[in-house]
Nucleic acid binder design. Structure first.
Length: 423
DNA sequence: TCTGGGGTCCTAGGACCC
DNA sequence: TCTGGGGTCCTAGGACCC
């Protein structure tokens, strides 16, 4: 069998790049994108990286932002999601198999292709030309090495032109020796600390470590990572997206909430959103977990957090039933006297529609639910999310997200003056 | 004043059973 | 004093990813 060649294509500073596509005047200007509620920095353009750390709270860096002329944006997920689809479509048309790994990354199988590096350069050029998004590409015999090659392409951008192919043992070893161990996919802050004790500091050290010891002292996951670094494939390309095993909708409120009624609105809104995602992947859920909590950072606020799992009478994807369960759950956990900051809905015990439940006499969701939800989803698909919604879900809630620096929904707004690609 | 939201997988430990 | 061994299932929590 030919040597495997897995490519990892990743968009540079994706959210910041998306904003820049529609603001050519910002081509050389440092850009940051903020999390929901304009809380902290979640993306930085190359120019902003020297001045701003990832995850830094926005209120702490206002001075720096002003001093360096950094332009900040609220996150605009409608835009990023749409841009992501465009990028993936371009790549998909150029490779035999693609696994979309996240909003800004995908693995492609280039095994058997002659000149994978050349193809990678063509992919970069096409994606840039058709979407305006710059990318970096790493190629290696395993996913973990492809990721590392991608990191190398970023780190030595000038010399590599954004593409690194670890096709010889010499190149592989050179990169392994240069890369700190926490640049390896699957090694985070904690693991880095543990490994340092054993003298494992670089990717090379980890690749050389004894597999059995890694498994015993740490985990099978780390053992696989080390094998992959040596070029032994342990992770396959998954071109069929797997249905999620749990679905979450959670968000901090735009302001602190005290009374139960506005929290109930938020819980209903999140529950409705989670139910939409559930139906989109054709699943039913049997449990709904609702949780609420106060702020966790301010030492002057009384802290409180509680959640509860509510069992549904039968596996369901009916927004109304899920909201009802969540609302009852809220009644059970809510305590007066706290300033609540966030709520979360988690749909659990998921199964695909029609999957055997294990209980011959188990009750099933009535057919009327399917009809009503079908109509709901159709209308919202046609006219935009939130056109038709349960009574409990307000249009413009007082507790909604703060997004003071939001860019227009250039590509998706129904009321927009123009749409990309519809010239 | 002000610190994201969405996931996955693995492990340890408790409850329970024979 | 000493206090089975083996198994399953479930849950909570840790660690990681983007």
């Amino acid at each position: 069998m030919a040597d495997r060649a897995i490519a990892l294509i990743d968009c540079n500073s994706f959210y910041a790049s998306c904003e820049r596509v529609f603001r050519p005047d910002l081509r050389r200007v440092p850009i940051v994108v903020l999390s929901n509620n304009d809380g902290c920095v979640i993306a930085r353009s190359a120019e902003a990286k020297p001045h701003v750390r990832m995850g830094e709270p926005y209120h702490k860096i206002r001075d720096v932002v002003r001093r360096h002329g950094i332009v900040a944006f609220s996150s605009n997920y409608a835009l990023y999601g749409d841009m992501s689809q465009r990028v993936m479509t371009v790549i998909e048309s150029m490779v035999p198999a693609l696994e979309v790994y996240s909003i800004d990354e995908a693995f492609a199988d280039l095994t058997g292709i002659s000149g994978p590096e050349q193809l990678a350069r063509q992919i970069r050029a096409q994606v840039l030309k058709q979407t305006g998004i710059p990318t970096g590409i790493g190629i290696g015999p395993t996913k973990t090495l492809a990721k590392l090659a991608n990191a190398a392409a970023k780190r030595w951008q000038q010399h590599t032109g954004g593409v690194v192919h670890l096709d010889t043992p010499e190149r592989r070893d050179w990169v392994l020796r240069k890369m700190p161990v926490d640049e390896v996919w699957g090694v985070g802050r904690r693991m880095k600390e543990h490994l340092a004790v054993a003298g494992i500091k670089t990717a090379w050290d980890l690749a050389q470590a004894d597999a059995w010891t890694l498994r015993k002292r740490h985990s099978v996951v780390l053992e696989k990572t080390a094998r992959e670094l040596r070029g032994v494939p342990c992770l396959d390309l998954e071109d069929e997206p797997q249905p999620k095993q749990e679905i979450c909708s959670s968000r901090a409120f735009g302001e602190r909430l005290h009374a139960i009624e506005p929290i109930r609105e938020a819980v209903a809104t999140y529950a409705a959103r989670a139910a939409e995602k559930l139906r989109a992947q054709g699943s039913l859920c049997k449990q709904v977990r609702v949780s609420i909590r106060t702020g966790m950072f301010n030492p002057n606020e009384a802290k409180f957090a509680k959640g509860i799992v509510c069992e549904l009478p039968f596996p369901s994807d009916d927004t109304r039933l899920i909201i009802k369960a969540a609302s009852q759950g809220l009644d059970a956990i809510y305590r007066t006297g706290y300033a609540y900051a966030k709520a979360e809905i988690l749909l659990m015990d998921l199964r695909q529609r029609g999957e055997f439940s294990g209980d011959l006499f188990a009750q099933e969701q009535p057919e009327s639910s399917e009809r009503v939800m079908g109509v709901l989803d159709q209308i919202n698909a046609r006219w935009g999310r939130g056109t038709l919604r349960p009574a409990r879900v307000p249009v413009t809630p007082g507790w909604g997200m703060r997004r003071e620096l939001l860019s227009p929904r250039y590509t998706t707004d129904w009321n927009g003056l123009w749409k990309v690609g519809c010239k």
